[in-house]
Design a protein around this nucleic acid. Structure first.
Lengths: 185, 185
DNA sequence: GGCGGCATGTAAACAGTTACATGATTCC
DNA sequence: GGAATCATGTAACTGTTTACATGCCGCC
């Protein structure tokens, strides 16, 4: 999966592994995060497979920056992947629910403080999403010239942000209900 | 993670790998699924680590059933894990969102049919959750004798089901909004 | 005879996480 | 002098997925 995220971003413009990490952290990390270690190793593998090429940028002598570019093969791989629609529900994993599921024998206060802490984190996450200015949440500059495409891309980015917002709100509501239910045990 | 799910179920009663697979499919799979291959290999590893023991049941001669039991070590491992509250948000991964995020260049009708299909699947998933009778969604019989514990366990199970219901409803709403937004492009 | 469910596993590949490792620059 | 940010990577491990593999039983 990470492979396609990297191809997706490199399809906008050439970037270093570090840039890709920041791009991901600022957008797709909300529904697919990655560690820098995985990004660098995946990029190397993709280069071996001919999906990307890289050149070392030495304009700034003391800083080694390896810039990756998507290849024709990479573009067609991305297109091929996007062409095959999902026919199943993506599996969801949530370790908090696993914990809650098996919390029957746990101390009530302990469970409550865990949920209250998660509530805080969810609240922060929601605020983080709310602070994102829709007009700034969009693909890199490369596409700004081609106005139509840029706007279209940005619309899709925002849709995923909308789900993030709805998700956090739903989760907060459920946490509140769950917390008061446990309080009244 | 799977390790703790298996310990959690075995803490109710001894079971075979197959039983565990069915238990998971009927409950925790909604927030943590597992393939039978992983269940069997994880059980073997847990046995080597002293968290479970197994005996082969030969009452039915032609059928080999390996029944796993949790050990004292296994119980304390589970307790220890439940004791350490989560201090971060569990990362969520959703490949549909990754696809949508990079769908700027895709054919509109193609994206729409993918989302409509996902809508159907989400609707089915919601109905599946709605058909679960809360009074039947509870731990195995072993605990029925101990009424208090059983009821407490069942409450936690239902809370996770509540999130599943809220999640599917939120997702459906978002899909509907997203679909009509793309229709009006 | 074929299908679905019961029941168990192995092997190989792929994906993801944690820890280790380095070194420069900029700002306080 | 120390912390943060830029920048890149490897190694070891753990977790997950897909494919292969077998064989019984009961039902239609």
């Amino acid at each position: 999966m990470l492979k396609y995220i990297l191809l997706g971003f490199l399809n906008y413009q050439g970037m270093t592994g570090y840039d890709l990490k920041r791009s991901i952290d600022g957008s797709t990390a909300h529904f697919w995060h990655a560690y820098h270690s995985q990004i660098y190793t995946t990029l190397r593998k993709m280069e071996r497979d001919g999906l990307v090429t890289s050149v070392i940028d030495d304009t700034d002598e003391r800083l080694e920056r390896r810039i990756y570019q998507i290849t024709k093969q990479g573009k067609s791989k991305l297109k091929e992947w996007l062409g095959k629609s999902l026919t199943e529900l993506p599996p969801s994993k949530d370790s908090l629910l696993v914990r809650l599921f098996f919390s029957g024998s746990r101390d009530r206060q302990e469970v409550l403080s865990e949920l209250r802490f998660q509530r805080q984190l969810r609240q922060q996450q929601l605020e983080l999403y709310q602070q994102i200015k829709p007009e700034e949440y969009s693909p890199p500059s490369q596409l700004r010239s081609d106005t139509l495409d840029f706007d279209r891309e940005a619309k899709f980015w925002r849709m995923t942000l909308d789900l993030g917002l709805a998700y956090e709100q739903m989760y907060l509501k459920w946490l509140d209900e769950t917390i008061s239910q446990i309080e009244s045990f």
